[in-house]
Simulated assay, not measured.
Amino acid sequence: MSTPLDATMIETIQSFDAEKRYKHLVKEVVANREIWILIDEHGCVMLNTDDEDCVPVWPNKEFAEAWATGEWETCKAEAISLNKWHSRWTHGLEDDELALVVFPIPEQEGLVIYPDELDYELKTLANKHR
């Protein structure tokens, strides 16, 4: 379970570019053993890029909740355990031909990657920490 982030830490992390936020997400997800999505009454929130339908993911509850404004204000942040992510989500997203938007923040897009790429990064880092 992650420790709540203070305002200074949130501000610092939000200053990262998309690539650095991606690296931060991988590190946090492995450390906390959970990844965050937004859900509404229909399931997980989706974003659309020019080429892909994507599921946005965040490393911490605070960042997911910060995205839940405007048309997404009724959405709730939900943690998915890393084990469930590996066992169900990666394959499910691939089967549905969905990509991921890694750690979008207000005013900045996230990196668009494929589920197997994130899975590989998470497993590689986790194996380094064993």
Rank of each mutant, 00 (worst) to 15 (best):
W67N: 01
D6Y: 05
P115S: 03
L125I: 00
M1Q: 09
L25R: 02
A31W: 01
A7H: 05
I35E: 05
L111F: 00
N127Q: 11
E65T: 12
A99E: 01
E121G: 00
L122Q: 08
P106I: 07
T49S: 15
L38T: 04
N83K: 12
R21W: 10
T49Y: 04
K128N: 09
I37L: 14
K76A: 12
F63S: 05
S81P: 03
L82S: 03
A7N: 08
E41T: 09
M9D: 01
E52P: 00
K20A: 15
S2L: 05
A31H: 06
K27Y: 02
I39L: 09
K61R: 15
G70Q: 09
D96L: 07
V57T: 04
A126S: 13
E117P: 01
K84P: 00
S2Y: 01
I35L: 13
M9H: 03
T74V: 14
T124C: 01
P104A: 04
W72M: 15
M9I: 05
L98K: 06
Y120G: 02
G92Q: 05
T124M: 06
D116K: 15
R130W: 10
D50M: 07
K23Q: 15
R130D: 10
Q14T: 06
T12Q: 14
R21H: 11
L122F: 07
G92H: 08
E34F: 01
L98M: 14
A99S: 14
S2C: 08
V26Y: 09
T124F: 11
A7P: 05
V30F: 10
L111P: 00
A7E: 14
I37G: 06
W89A: 03
T90E: 12
S2F: 01
V29E: 06
L82A: 05
